[in-house]
């Protein structure tokens, strides 16, 4: 609406004037595209620069021993075995807890919940929870899981704390994914006499699973880098043994002892290394940073692949 006059009386413009206006608007097009590219370059170049710097600094330390060694006072013999396994186990617990709860809550709110003031309040609160600082979840985890549920400063307490942290993300993503399903699918199912549960199980969940996975990816990517809530829950820094194996030779062949064991995670290990007096540990921190980024990318890559496979099966 820059030129209200020109819209009111279009006939008064000569061809030359119209061309000038078009040229001007095209110029704005170019300027905006340029700004967009600039914004993209700033983001990508900064990230790439950081990553390249990490790789350049940490490359020499990325030996097989680095992955199999534990804490040490000597930078060259210190490794990430405990931290890497710890991160994977904690994230495993997080996903196992957050996905069923988050998807369940999302489906209920979208498909079953009556539209009244109570549902409204719950919806607003879930959106707000996504913005609560992570250390607050750490305090909640400490009070609820560590002390009230007596889970100790363990893998399971940490995993459940991070699950709370990403729960709002999963719920919101589930609801958004369900909303993108066209209304006629729903109507078609009902027209054929499907019950609500049949609709959800046969149509809503399969069709929205790609979007839900995107939410899980974002949630896991956030959880994997978290430090503050895990320090609050009581992560250790130096651990010299791996958690006990989840498999065993006698019945029932699965052991869950690792859930109750102390843990450390990659970001905490990195932070501890950066704060050491011996400068050689900075190299370890950079190397651990590279591993953490690759772990995140690998987890996300896996989820993106699954999403791709799921999307291929959907034909409307």
């Amino acid at each position: 609406m820059q030129h209200p006059a020109s819209f009111a009386k279009p006939a008064t413009h000569s061809v030359a004037q119209i061309r000038a206006i078009i040229r001007k608007h095209k110029r704005w097009d170019l300027v905006f595209a340029g700004l967009g590219i600039l914004a993209l370059i700033i983001g990508v170049v900064t990230l790439a620069g950081l990553f390249i710097d990490l790789v350049a600094t940490g490359w020499g330390r990325l030996t097989p021993e680095f992955f199999t060694s534990f804490s040490s006072r000597r930078a060259t013999s210190a490794g990430i075995a405990a931290a890497m396994v710890g991160t994977l186990l904690v994230i495993l617990v997080t996903v196992m807890a957050a996905v069923p709860l988050g998807v369940g809550a999302g489906v209920y709110l979208e498909e079953y919940a009556p539209k009244n003031w109570l549902t409204g309040i719950i919806e607003i609160n879930i959106s707000n929870l996504a913005g609560v600082p992570s250390v607050v979840y750490g305090l909640l985890g400490l009070g609820l899981f560590v002390y009230a549920w007596n889970l100790d400063h363990s893998v399971v307490a940490a995993g459940l704390t991070l699950a709370l942290l990403i729960l709002p993300i999963v719920i919101v993503a589930t609801r958004e994914a369900i909303r993108t399903i066209p209304g006629h699918i729903r109507e078609g199912a009902y027209a054929l006499g499907a019950t609500k549960w049949q609709l959800v199980a046969h149509h809503i969940l399969p069709y929205s699973s790609a979007g839900i996975l995107t939410g899980i990816i974002i949630g896991v990517a956030r959880a994997i880098g978290e430090t503050a809530p895990l320090i609050t829950v009581g992560a250790a820094v130096a651990i010299f043994t791996l958690p006990s194996s989840p498999f065993r030779s006698d019945f029932p062949f699965l052991s869950l002892e690792w859930l109750k064991e102390p843990f450390t995670v990659m970001p905490i290990q990195m932070f501890q290394w950066t704060s050491r007096p011996d400068q050689a540990f900075q190299i370890n921190a950079a190397a651990a940073g590279v591993v953490l980024i690759v772990m995140t990318l690998a987890l996300n890559g896996l989820a993106i692949y699954i999403r791709y496979r799921l999307r291929k099966n959907i034909k409307w």
Binding site: F70, S71, S72, R73, G234, A235, A236, V237, A238, I239, F240, T241, E261, P262, T264, Q272
Partner: peptide, 18 residues
């Protein structure tokens, strides 16, 4: 703890926090 672990060959789990 590091040296202790070498000596005990992992039979005792020592964890150190900050």
């Amino acid at each position: 703890a590091e040296e202790f672990q070498v000596k005990k060959k992992g039979s005792v789990k020592v964890t150190v926090g900050i």
